[in-house]
Simulated assay, not measured.
Amino acid sequence: MDSFLRENLVTCLAVYISAVGGRESTIGQRAAGDWRFFRRLADPSVTFTIRKYEEVMLWFRANWPADAAWPENVPDPKSVDQYSLFQLTAEQGNAHVAEIDPYRGVNTINPRSVQA
Rank of each mutant, 00 (worst) to 15 (best):
P75R: 08
Y103V: 14
K52F: 02
F60N: 03
P102F: 15
F37R: 02
A42H: 05
N110H: 15
R39S: 09
I27P: 00
V80K: 00
G21H: 08
W35A: 05
F4M: 11
G28V: 01
D76H: 14
P65R: 13
W64D: 02
D34R: 05
W59P: 12
M1A: 10
M57W: 02
V10H: 08
S79P: 08
F86E: 09
E54S: 10
T89F: 11
K52V: 05
N107V: 06
D43E: 11
E91Y: 14
A14K: 14
I50L: 04
T89Q: 04
N107H: 11
S84D: 12
V106G: 04
R104D: 04
L85G: 01
F4Q: 05
R23V: 06
V20C: 04
E7D: 11
N8I: 00
F38W: 11
I27L: 09
F86V: 06
A98W: 05
A68V: 08
N73Y: 06
Y103P: 00
A14V: 01
Q29N: 05
D43H: 07
E91I: 06
N94E: 09
V80S: 02
E55S: 03
W64P: 01
P77G: 13
E99L: 05
Y53L: 04
R40M: 07
F60K: 09
S84L: 14
D67F: 03
F38S: 03
I27C: 00
G105K: 12
K78A: 14
P65M: 12
V46A: 00
W70A: 06
A95D: 08
I17E: 07
T49Y: 03
V114L: 13
L5I: 07
G28T: 01
V15A: 07
A14I: 00
